[in-house]
Design a protein around this nucleic acid. Structure first.
Length: 490
RNA sequence: CGGGAUGUAGCGCAGCCCGGUAGCGCGCUUCGUUCGGGACGAAGAGGCCGCAGGUUCGAAUCCUGUCAUCCCGACCA
């Protein structure tokens, strides 16, 4: 491993790419646009999954699994949905290979599928086709299902975690008897995502509504959580859609209500993906490497022994074994790094690169004094403390770190969210500082597109917490009733 | 799909103009000394030079084709 990584100031984008690879999170695969998520990176994703999965269960949802392949005909049933995904679908056309006689393996042209299959870019169509068979009466509703799956979107330009051709995600798909209930579900799940982002990822987010232009293909309303990265660019971290009756109509899913009337079912869908890994990395990490919030760190504490002789090592190991047992009893994950193939300085740097929140170094000197050196990753500070009561101190420290990382990110976001009233001011802030820019907009797609073309900034969302405020569109001067949040985005 | 560039050891690169059968750094292996912030020394291992043709006594090097990757644009979130 070569020393260090490119600093954020030098090249933020390169810093990110190097960090993902050097911290052992993921790497490029032999398949264009697809990544290999390595064990350490996958361990973080698993922690995210576990927390989210529990939150879904706590809000009444169950997991299920639907096919990877979707008949092409399903796609054409909801017009705007097709339009949104048509240009980035992988299509399966054949089901057999053969040897061409010269030792080459080729597609057997005779084994052509009668109907081509689309590798799912999202599962609304196959799921709603299935729901038709599940729903007859209001008694069958609501259906609250989630699936953990991979999806494929044939992207032209990819980046590890942020945009890959294949990615992992969860997609919730719910069916309801009334519009109100579906809208409520859409809001509830957005709340779950915001809760997860802030309390697990330590990532402050803005809850908002997408403009018509940015809305999910096939949805009546798209809600989102938007986060700000350290380079001043925004990242959409999760979405929750109110689908109205669009898919129920496309797939003819009706139910009989209490009063005997037949009506189409109301729908929602919501999802977060491995893109969250990118958000996690870019929100907190520094020039020394990854900074992980303790709640998502696969290893929360690493113990590095410092010794010269076998006797010293044995003494330290005895101490470490006791400490590890105490920490584990509190549900804290610990790694005792007793590799004698690396020296302590190397280990320090390596675990910092990998973002382990707390490091405890114990040497012969500490053993004599009854102390350890304890270092926290988020502030890069260290102090010498007594061995006595260490487990409790570590537990408290982990909580402090979780809190501190969030506060730091929140302070950054607040410092990088500004209100502007003129287009000139807007452009200036965008160039000099980036971040979220709160401004009045006339509500038209034309103006939104013009701003995007001229500045590359998009409307990230119309904040749900935003107060109505009369003003004038910074571009056209037309009246506006609320500020919206702009940013350049990933 | 348009413009530009690059494919040589696990990674990063030199060699190519002026053809003579491959080298440097990191990493890896072994031994020794080290060990409180990315150690040092010595000895090793490792390469159909992206692939396929061609020119030549001889090709990493010249020519043709092809594939792949990266950057900029277009497209996309």
């Amino acid at each position: 491993m070569s020393k260090g990584i490119t600093s954020r100031d030098t090249d933020y984008s390169q810093w990110y790419n190097e960090l993902v690879v050097k911290a052992d999170l993921a790497e490029h695969s032999a398949v264009r646009g697809c990544m290999v998520i390595k064990p350490y990176g996958y361990a973080i994703w698993e922690k995210m999954q576990a927390a989210l999965d529990q939150m879904f269960k706590d809000t009444g949802h169950s997991n299920a699994y639907f096919p990877l392949f979707i008949p092409k005909s399903f796609f054409s049933k909801e017009a705007s949905h097709v339009e949104g995904f048509a240009t980035e679908c992988a299509v399966v056309t054949h089901y057999r290979l053969k040897n061409d006689g010269t030792g080459q393996i080729v597609v057997d042209e005779e084994a052509k599928l009668e109907e081509e299959l689309i590798v799912r870019p999202t599962s609304e169509t196959i799921i709603w086709n299935t729901y038709r068979g599940w729903i007859e009466s209001y008694r069958d509703l609501p259906i609250l299902v989630n699936q953990w799956a991979n999806v494929v979107r044939w992207e032209m330009r990819t980046r590890l975690f942020l945009r890959t051709a294949e990615f992992l995600w969860q997609e919730g798909h719910t069916a309801h008897a009334t519009r109100e209930e579906a809208v409520e579900e859409t809001n509830r799940m957005l709340g779950v995502y915001a809760d997860f982002a802030e309390n697990w990822m330590a990532l402050p987010v803005v809850k908002g509504r997408k403009t018509e232009n940015e809305r999910f293909a096939g949805a009546l309303d798209t809600l989102c959580i938007e986060a700000l990265m350290q380079d001043g660019k925004a990242l959409q971290a999760g979405t929750s859609h109110f689908l109205g009756q669009n898919f129920a109509k496309a797939f003819d899913v009706k139910f009989t209500a209490k009063d005997g009337k037949l009506d189409y079912v109301w729908a929602t869908s919501w999802g977060v993906s491995t893109r969250l890994m990118g958000a996690l990395i870019m929100a907190h990490s520094d020039d020394a490497g990854l900074v992980l919030p303790p709640k998502l760190a696969p290893i929360q504490v690493v113990i590095v022994p410092i010794y010269k002789t076998d006797e010293e090592k044995a003494g330290i190991t005895g101490f470490a074994d006791t400490l590890i047992a105490e920490l584990k009893a509190q549900g804290i994950s610990v790694r005792f790094d007793d590799r004698d193939t690396q020296r302590p300085g190397f280990k320090f740097a390596e675990w910092e690169l990998k973002g382990v929140p707390v490091r405890i170094a114990v040497g012969a000197r500490d053993m004599q004094n009854g102390t350890v050196e304890i270092a926290r990753r988020d502030t890069q500070t260290k102090e010498t403390v007594a061995q006595e009561g260490l487990a409790a101190r570590v537990a408290g420290l982990l909580e402090d770190i979780q809190q501190h990382i969030f506060t730091k990110a929140l302070t950054f976001r607040n410092a990088n969210t500004v209100e502007v009233n003129t287009y000139d001011e807007f452009k200036q802030v965008l160039e000099e500082k980036g971040g979220f820019i709160s401004a009045h907009w006339d509500g038209t797609v034309e103006t939104e597109k013009r701003i995007k073309e001229e500045t590359k900034a998009t409307i990230r969302c119309i904040p749900l917490a935003g107060q109505p405020e009369d003003g004038f569109c910074m571009v056209t001067g037309k009246p506006s009733t609320q500020r919206v949040l702009f940013a350049r985005a990933y």
